[in-house]
Each structure stands twice: as C-alpha cells, then as structure tokens.
C-alpha cells in the first residue's frame, strides 16, 4: 500500500515540478524583451498598473540574476502563495481573483462529472447486450461524445435560453442581485447554473455510457461469467458481477478524463459567461493578464493532481485486488 501511494505521490510531485517549470520557462522563451513586450501587449491605461507590471516583471524575472536564482525566486514566490497582481482587476492579487472564481467552477464541475459518470455507467451497463437499448444508446452516445463542449453549450443556450426563454444564458446570477444567502438568490443561482451543468453533463454522459457498455460486454465474455453461466447462474447475478468489475476501469478512466473535463468546463463557462475559471482565462487572454493566466494554470494543475489522488484512494477502497496484493498475502 505504501509503495503504491509512494509511487503515485512521486508522479504527482514530479508533475507539479514540471508544471511549475513550464510556467517559469515559457515566458522566457517569449521573443524579444519580455518585460517591454508584455507591458506593450497589455494595453493597460492606468499608469499605476503599468508601473507595477514593470516592477513585478523585473523583480520576478530578475534578469541581472543567474538563471538558477531566477528559478528559485519563482518557487519562493509560489510557495508563499504569491501569484502576483492581476492586471485585469488591478490591483487585486491573482490568488484572490482565482479564489473568487473557483467555487463557481467546482460547483459546476463536481456535480456534472459525478452525475454523468454514475448515470452514464448505469445507462451503458443497461444497454449492453440488449439490442433495442444498444441501438439507441450507442449512436446517441457517439454523437454526444463527439460534440465539442462549447457547441452543445451554444445549442442549449440558443434552444432553451433564447428561443424557449426558459433559462438565462449569461452570468452566475442576475445582474440585479447581490450575492447573499436568501432563498431568492439561491434559486437565481440555480437557474443560471442549470444550462451549463446540463451541457457538461450531457457531453460527458456519452463517453461514460459507451465505455461502460464496452467494458460490460468484455466482462460478460470473461471466463468467470462463462463459468457462472455454465453453472446456470441467472443473468441478474452475472450482470451484477460484471458491472462491479467493469466499474473499476471506469474509475481509472475518470482520472484519465480529468484534463478533458476541465477543458470542457472552461469552454462551457465561456459560452455562458459563467464567472468561473474559464471566464477568468478568457478575460486574462483578452487583457493580456499573464499573471492571472499563469496563476489559473497553476491552480488547475493543483486541482487535477488533488482529484487524481482522491481517485487513487477511492480505487484502492473499491478494488479488493489492490489491497490483497498490497498486503502481500500470497498463499
């Protein structure tokens, strides 16, 4: 068990180092004088912001210092939680800007990812080896999973928002409201959340359903299923076992899909101008706010690593083989 988690943590640790290094290195590859370039590209009107930017960049890059020193400085700042000052909402610290957006992204992602995973698995398992269901679930699943996230978002926003007028299509809550804990505000929040959630949920659903269907068929053809069938065990029992075993690779699949799911959430947020990290990224790009972009990047990497680790733990809890193998009990 220790070895398993040790290995995983090593990978995650290294990944973090690589991500930080990429984050540090890329700006240095920028053609021309980075400070001047960035200040010029960030067409900020406030002189204070320009000055702060210049100062920050010079301090951050510290071009008079040797490279290794610059690298260490970068780490130092990072470990102090210092992501710099946002240009777009000058002079708010980047970390504050990100923290304001994170709840929206998590509130959108966690339910949609988990729900699509659960429902998709059920649907796929149900469809497997049932002609009629298979012939409907499979094609729909392929269409959904082939859809770009933003396109389904646009379609939903247009169909249910603009044409049918059932849902608002922009923002996290109505412009006329101030965030508070009143039922009215929460309902409004939910109303704005519905479409982006539905969009993320639907696109991911197809992939899980197809994956589960294929896994279940594989399990139903496995030796233990054949053996149970030869002993006359009812389909119900065989399917129950198959489902249980097919869920395991789907858990691993969830970890592998995290990057795609995050990307999907980002573009979906952009479509709905939902005030999460996706909209933040768009704003950062539009305003050439590189600190904000880099901070958001670091934050996404950390989030994905944490989620991966949680999934690893869940996997060990769910798959007896990892535990049995790790306890070293070999008869």
């Amino acid at each position: 068990m220790r070895r398993y988690f040790g290995r995983k943590l090593l990978v995650y640790g290294l990944t973090f180092v690589v991500a930080v290094t990429v984050n540090w290195m890329i700006p240095r590859f920028m053609p021309g004088d980075p400070v001047a370039g960035m200040v010029a590209r960030a067409n900020v009107s406030q002189p204070a912001a320009v000055e702060a930017m210049k100062q920050y960049y010079t301090g951050l890059f510290g071009f008079d210092q040797p490279l290794w020193r610059q690298y260490l400085n970068f780490w130092g700042a990072l470990l102090h939680g210092d992501f710099g000052i946002s240009i777009w909402v000058f002079p708010t610290p980047v970390s504050d800007v990100i923290m304001g957006a994170v709840p929206y992204t998590l509130g959108l992602m966690i339910p949609s990812v988990l729900l699509s995973w659960v429902v998709g698995n059920r649907l796929g398992a149900y469809a497997a080896r049932r002609k009629l269901m298979d012939n409907t679930v499979l094609p729909i699943g392929y269409v959904l999973t082939a859809m770009p996230y933003m396109w389904l978002a646009v379609l939903l926003a247009w169909g249910l928002g603009v044409v049918a007028g059932l849902f608002p299509i922009a923002g996290g809550y109505s412009f006329s409201m101030q965030p508070n804990w009143s039922a009215e505000f929460l309902l409004d929040l939910l109303h704005h959340w519905a479409l982006p959630f539905a969009s993320l949920f639907l696109v991911a659903l197809g992939g899980w359903a197809i994956g589960m269907r294929n896994m279940i068929i594989y399990e139903l053809e496995s030796d233990y299923s054949t053996y149970l069938a030869a002993l006359g065990a009812p389909h119900r029992l065989i399917r129950r076992y198959a489902f249980r075993n097919a869920v395991l690779p789907q858990i691993t699949g969830l970890a592998l899909q995290l990057g795609v799911l995050v990307a999907g959430a980002l573009v979906t947020e952009i479509v709905f101008s939902y005030p999460g990290l996706g909209s933040l990224i768009l704003k950062a790009i539009q305003n050439q706010d590189f600190f904000l972009l880099q901070g958001t990047f670091m934050f996404i990497v950390l989030g994905v690593l944490a989620a991966n680790f949680i999934i690893d733990i869940v996997y060990v809890v769910v798959d007896p083989r990892t535990r049995a193998g790790m306890a070293g009990a070999q008869a």
């Binding site: 233990y224 054949t226 053996y227 030869a230 076992y241 075993n245």
Partner: peptide
C-alpha cells in the same frame, strides 16, 4: 456440471 479449462480465471476476481 463443468470443470472448465480456464479454472485460473473462473472465479470472480472481486
């Protein structure tokens, strides 16, 4: 009843 040739994998692993 049957003793299959795949006894090594005939039991549900989980």
């Amino acid at each position: 009843s049957l003793v299959p040739q795949y006894s090594m994998s005939a039991l549900n692993p989980t």
